[in-house]
Write a protein that binds this DNA or RNA. Sequence first.
DNA 1: TTGTGTTGAGTTAGCGCTAACGTAACGGTG
DNA 2: CACCGTTACGTTAGCGCTAACTCAACACAA
Lengths: 333, 333
Amino acid sequence: MIKRTTLADIAKAANVSMMTVSRAINNKPGLSDELRQHILSLVEEMGYRPNTFARGLATSQTTTIGLVVPDNTNPFFAQIARGVEDAAFENLYNIFLVNTNEDAARETAALETLWQKGIDGVILCSSRLSGQALEYQVQRFPAIVLVNRELKQSHANLITINVNDHRSAQRVLQHFMGLDRRIIAYIGGPANSFSNQRRLDGYKNGLRSAEIPFSPQLVISTQPTTEGGREAAAALLRHRPDVNAIFAYNDLVAVGAMQVCQELGKRVPEDIAIIGVDDIPLATIIRPQLTTMHVPLTHIGRLAMRALIDLIAGEGSSAAYQIEPELFIRDSA
Amino acid sequence: MIKRTTLADIAKAANVSMMTVSRAINNKPGLSDELRQHILSLVEEMGYRPNTFARGLATSQTTTIGLVVPDNTNPFFAQIARGVEDAAFENLYNIFLVNTNEDAARETAALETLWQKGIDGVILCSSRLSGQALEYQVQRFPAIVLVNRELKQSHANLITINVNDHRSAQRVLQHFMGLDRRIIAYIGGPANSFSNQRRLDGYKNGLRSAEIPFSPQLVISTQPTTEGGREAAAALLRHRPDVNAIFAYNDLVAVGAMQVCQELGKRVPEDIAIIGVDDIPLATIIRPQLTTMHVPLTHIGRLAMRALIDLIAGEGSSAAYQIEPELFIRDSA
DNA sequence: TTGTGTTGAGTTAGCGCTAACGTAACGGTG
DNA sequence: CACCGTTACGTTAGCGCTAACTCAACACAA
């Protein structure tokens, strides 16, 4: 392994003080252009790169942030992570990726190890933490962006980014109405999910606007996976074979439901129309292609990272972004 | 934001020197059990957590590693990353995730920023770097694990992990033979991909064992995506509608190919049998479910992380792991 | 000429932590 | 009782870097 070149090495080689080298590489005033050029050429020649964390110790800025997600394998979070990483790379930030496995204890532990690294901020996706625990994290980190989670109280170092689930659900119902489908089921996600609750509200609201009575039989909760979608759809159709439209919690659930419908001899979209949420890559891979509420996941990731950087720079201020999804009409509805 | 509690704070509170506190928290000898307990209770009470990078400055160990992948959105790498992160978490390591976008320049830049962080090691997946550039990286980082890439020369701080692509391909051909399919196409990945080359060799070898002459018409290169699979399959079937088996570079390609076959009125697997590689989640979501060479991706990730930790600890030594995939027979062949 | 900036440096101190060495007190040994 | 090893700490120095201060040299206005 090569020995690291340090500031001191450069200073010695240039026969100046370390401070002068520091000023040169950080592009700060206080030395002649000539000397600066000379030092920079030495830096290049000797392959010097400043140690971020030594610098961080002195400045308490590490150009490093944490990204906490339930599962980086889930396309939803993978896309967001991609957006975050892209924006981070452009701004010369590095990201610590941590999975929580949807487990609050592991999430706490993860935030603990991140805190130990002295990072500049955190992007926390779909946090399972209690409001109180979250408040604590918000005040301990310099800056924090919450994706897919709200917090009652606002903080100067906090920004939240949420999808407008309520409007999403309404838009879906509206589309079903246009198709003249009035027996509409909602296959929801886990009951403790915030977005699930908001979508359910939107669903009920949409029914009300269309003067369709709400039937609990048509609402079923399940895991947000293909398998969950399969189980839920099977149970649903057993009790209500007359269903002619399904609004699914997300695309994975929608795909699972679609398969079960087909296996039971229902045609999609002729007999049962199906709409998902998220618009993950799978939505266009599956046949029939899935009609879904497109959520700009990569964009959310980028937005989160930029918001965090602003917060860190002290330029951003408390804000709650609302993302408006758009209905992408394909073949399943 | 809360002010950090430091070693000095604890030392003052306990009325001992910083060194004694350091010894206590690092579980090193040199103080009475009684005092140690007292200090640890103070640590707990005051919520002290050592700063990893301050410690790193003093010890040159940061319990931090870099994970470099082409695209964390690709299920192949997402699964590997998950395995890496799991093992890292268990060993109290944190990982820097960076995407290279399959771009050598960006990969170099990414390694540069990682190097600046003074990390303990790197896991580099499907590197697009030249052999020479790779040699340079190997000697600059304390420890490095290469996944899906080989390096001629061996190094004390290097471990490589590769899938046995050659044997994979042979196993696939063997299965096709058992199904009495003898007009076997190979839809390969990018020509500059190492694994593609190895699979192609295995394919040719398999043909030779079965005394089937090699036909260039039956081999086609494409992007490793569903869309790539679609295009390739369409082109293939235009020239050779008599094909009755397709070996695809990976599952995404296989799915794309399968769809085109079906759209052209071919039944899968009756008319055309299709086998992919990797066994990503999509393989069991799609219908018919995909027969594929199962590659234990999460396991590879865990293995990579553990190997890297051993290397860092100076316990591991130069090694080249070969992973043997297994044929998972489902419905497409 | 004297005072007052300004420019281009260097010096000092310290971020939070640990390796390596120093030392006082104590107990055992011949 | 002198000698020595051990235990239980403290002290010093330094990891690589920068903030904040100092200082010499020079220009320029009054």
